[in-house]
């Protein structure tokens, strides 16, 4: 009967059957019918209900990317709907469920973050606000983890390609600037120092003065923010190395100046 209605039924029959299927949890079949009747019902009062059911069906069928899109569209098309808040939340939640592991494409993660942000701003009194905040936090954590791991990839491969020290330093700086109060702040500051420290040791003497300064600045920043850091011991050793190197470079420069002066005389 389903095939018959799908292929030959009138739009009204198709609509009735789609709703029936939807109510008996046969979502993928319902979706095919909804797809067929959408052009005819566009602009009609039934469309509000149809669009919500399409979004919900996609959600239940675990097409989260699609349900995120449809819930969002529902919220935009029917700003006066009683289901507006629910749709806004489900759109954000769908994108979160669609969002893959931190090491993959961040598009859906970003969409979910934006959607929860706007939900939190629009419905500060919602009873879902706590849940929304929790989701938001998790998503932000996922994104930070991503950029932290990418920065670490640069650091890990820097011995092979020395330019990656600079890349790692810039990437940790980006992370610290983009996510104030980051959960990764302590670790990022530590690895930032480590990258700067290792970079000094791999540099030519003439490039060292500014790079030593940058590394010591990184140490100061870690110490200022986390004086009790678990990384302090290791960092102190790095600082000692840097200071020793500084002394050596200073002596080298002094000697050079002396030679130049004696030449002038």
């Amino acid at each position: 009967e389903y095939q018959k209605v799908l292929n030959k039924g009138t739009t009204e029959e198709q609509y009735k059957m789609a709703v029936k299927l939807y109510e008996s949890n046969k979502f993928s079949k319902a979706l095919r019918l909804f797809e067929k009747i959408t052009p005819t019902y566009r602009g009609k009062p039934q469309m509000e209900r149809i669009q919500f059911m399409v979004a919900q069906s996609n959600f239940n069928e675990k097409n989260y990317s699609m349900s995120g899109y449809y819930f969002d569209r529902f919220a935009k098309n029917y700003p006066k709907s009683s289901k507006l808040e629910e749709a806004a939340f489900l759109s954000a939640y769908s994108y979160k469920l669609a969002s893959p592991s931190f090491s993959l494409d961040p598009t859906d993660t970003n969409k979910a973050l934006d959607a929860f942000q706007s939900f939190i701003n629009t419905y500060p009194d919602s009873d879902k606000i706590e849940e929304a905040n929790q989701h938001y936090k998790e998503l932000r954590y996922k994104l930070q983890k991503k950029y932290f791991e990418i920065a670490k990839t640069y650091y890990r491969t820097a011995e092979y390609d020395l330019r990656n020290y600079k890349a790692a330093i810039q990437a940790f700086d980006n992370l610290l600037a983009d996510f104030l109060g980051s959960e990764f702040k302590e670790e990022a500051l530590y690895y930032r120092l480590k990258a700067a420290h290792d970079f000094v040791l791999k540099s030519y003497d003439r490039r060292k003065p500014e790079r030593i300064k940058d590394a010591i600045d990184a140490y100061d920043k870690l110490k200022r923010n986390y004086p009790e850091s678990q990384f302090m011991e290791d960092s102190n050793i790095m600082l000692a190395t840097l200071q020793k190197e500084q002394v050596r470079i200073d002596a080298l420069i002094a000697k050079q100046v002396e030679v130049q002066n004696s030449k002038k005389k």
Binding site: S101, S103, L104, K146, E149, I150, T153, Y154, T157, R163, N164, K166, A167, I169, Q170, A171, N174
Partner: peptide, 15 residues
């Protein structure tokens, strides 16, 4: 995964 791509990219932050 990110690391598979980022280790191949010749465009790097800071360059």
């Amino acid at each position: 995964n990110d690391h598979v791509l980022f280790r191949e990219l010749r465009v790097k932050p800071g360059d």
